[in-house]
Amino acid sequence: MTAAQPATGHDHVVVAADVNGVSVTEPVPTRWTLAQFLRDRLGLTGTKVSCELQVCGACSVLVDGAPVSACTYLAADIDGRRVQTVEGLAARDQLHPLQRSFVEHFALQCGFCTPGFLMMAKALLDRNPDPTEDEVKEYLDGNICRCTGYEPIVAAVLDAAKRMRGQA
C-alpha cells in the first residue's frame, strides 16, 4: 500500500504496542496520527475519521483503557501502551453486549459514528457500570451522530449496562 510506505523525507520512530491483544512493532512517521496508523498501517479501518478536530468522537479508541481521539493523538505516543479499537470489542463470534444492544435498539443508521460511540460507551461502563440516563448523555455528549437523533443510543447504552450487570 503506497500510503503506508514511510513518507519520504520524514522522521520515523518505532512503536511497540498492544493493539487489541496483538503486539505490534512498527516504524511510523512522527507526523502520523493514531488513526492513520490504525487504518493505513494496520488495516483496522473500523476506526473512522470525520471532523479531525476532536469534536465529533468518530475516531474514539481506548489507550490504556482511557478514550482518546485517534484523529489528533500521535501514533508515536502509543509506544508501550495498550490500544483497543472497535475490532477488538467482540470476543470471537460473540458480540459485546454494547454491540448487540446497538443493533437491537437501532442505535445506528449509517454507522459511521458507531465505532466511536461504542468505544466511548465502553469506557463509561468500564468505570461506571450503572450510569443514570443523564450520566450517559453527559459522557457521550462529545460524540456526534447525524443520523439517529441520539435517543436510541442512550437507550442502547442503558440496556447494555443492565445486561452487563446481569452477567457480572
Binding site: 473500523g46 470489542l89 458507531t114
Partner: peptide
Amino acid sequence: VQRRDLFEKVTGAATYTVDVTPPGCLH
C-alpha cells in the same frame, strides 16, 4: 426486523468508500 447491515457496522467490518484502497493506489 433487525437490520443485517447493522451487524457489520457495529464490528467495524462494514466497508465504506474511505476504507477502499486498491493496490498501487496514489493519493
